[in-house]
Design a protein around this nucleic acid. Structure first.
Lengths: 241, 241
DNA sequence: CGTGGGTTTGAGTCGGATCAAATCTCGTGG
DNA sequence: CCACGAGATTTGATCCGACTCAAACCCACG
């Protein structure tokens, strides 16, 4: 049923992204090792589902490598991307600690390796290293804040402004600096930008084209290059050309 | 001043809302009493601000009596209501446990009494009763889920549908059953409904008027009476007349 | 009574969704 | 290595929901 679980499971790899993950802040090396030991890894191909919205939460995850999107599906099937997950980031924590169904679906955008802990294992390990609970809460608090500003933007800001913020957020999360600006290191479709911003792919296309002609951004081999973060930040109020 | 739980009648119910608050689930009576002891109460008149968005978080709160709204302000001054707080509900918990500025402003809609714990006191008490941390996380998880569905609704649903959901949520939070339907026990202005739904007071007015003429709702002395929750739930897809 | 906050209602406008179609890209297999 | 086809993107034309502005109205209150 869950396609993802057919993925292969291996015990050995030591992922650097896990070691420096902020969920393990404040732990000793031994404690970190203990967490890693007790988790299993699973790999997912592009498009596979790691966890499904509405299912009872069975596991806590940290992404080792790859790239995931967390999304909500509407009744009509439109998908809305809540956020992306980059290596080192946890997900499913919300519910490994309270008990509720997963609030979102996690899908691999790139081939991904995920470290997994069962509910019981987490409960067990938290007994030994309660600091992790605090770290997870910190993550939650930060997502909460993001969601709040997103709700605010959705009701007050124009599409242009929201798209600009989406790009800036992506730049922060998976951008690489280059001489000409910040390159977003993921190939995202117009549709995905739209799902992320809460608009349609057509509007995204038009807007990006406009910005490209204004020299704000540039598309290089399917990747987006932001030439000026400052100017992007100012989009919204000052729409002229 | 604060005494054991062995019942003592007083004109002001002594924090009954606090005793049954879900933040204190799983605690013994003694532990609850301990929390209550260490908190101080403060009262706020209608319109006063309890905590301000952006300020460093100094306290954790539980509402004893009254009614609060948590809102975000935009640069232009538009306010957007994130949620209401009814007696027994905590707020500011997000940040008493991580450390970030308050993500929202809390304003008293009705004269309110608030129990307050300082950051340090909370840290102290959590050492003794760690269960409270879990309870707070459960609250956070539930708000998170609400925010997620709200974000989804804002991008996909029509105003009618969103307003209907707003009313249903209010009914759940502060509704009282009557023979004719559920009465929302707070006098909210059209503007507040709008701030809550992410629309304008004009659209709210038109929509409510329409629903009233359809017999879905009714205004009684400034309060809103929902005559049929079921029909309200079906609004959105089925707009006809 | 007046006065002011809240509400209703009307008319006009526009951002952005929708639908349709042409064009581009790139991975794939021949 | 090239040509093909599926998916992605661009662009145009049209339409509608909901915001905006303006004005009248309704009440609760002193």
């Amino acid at each position: 049923m869950r396609q993802g679980l057919s993925a292969k499971v291996s015990p050995m790899p030591i992922a650097a992204s896990l070691l420096r993950s902020r969920v393990f802040d404040g732990l000793t090396d031994a404690e970190r090792a203990c967490w890693l030991d007790r988790g299993t890894t699973a790999t997912f191909a592009r498009g596979q589902t790691v966890a499904r919205q509405g299912e009872p939460a069975r596991s806590f995850y940290v992404l080792e490598s790859g790239f995931l999107k967390l999304l909500q599906l509407t009744a009509e099937g439109t998908e809305l991307i809540m956020r992306f997950v980059v290596p080192g980031e946890p997900f499913g924590g919300v519910v490994a600690l309270s008990d509720a169904p997963y609030p979102v679906t996690a899908v691999a955008v790139q081939p991904s390796v995920v470290r997994t802990w069962s509910r019981e294992t987490v409960a067990d390990l938290l007994g030994v290293t309660p600091q992790v609970r605090v770290n997870i809460m910190r993550e939650m608090a930060s997502h909460m804040t993001h969601l709040l500003t997103r709700v605010r933007e959705l009701t007050t800001a124009r599409v242009d402004e929201r798209l600009a913020h989406t790009l800036l957020r992506l730049a922060r999360q998976c951008g690489r600096p280059t001489p000409d600006g910040v390159l977003i290191t993921q190939r995202l479709t117009r549709q995905e930008f739209a799902d992320l911003t809460g608009t349609t792919l057509y509007t995204v296309s038009r807007t990006l084209t406009k910005w490209e002609s204004m020299g704000l951004i540039e598309t290089r081999k399917r990747l987006l290059l932001l030439r000026s973060l400052e100017k992007l930040e100012r989009v919204g109020g000052a729409e002229d050309e």
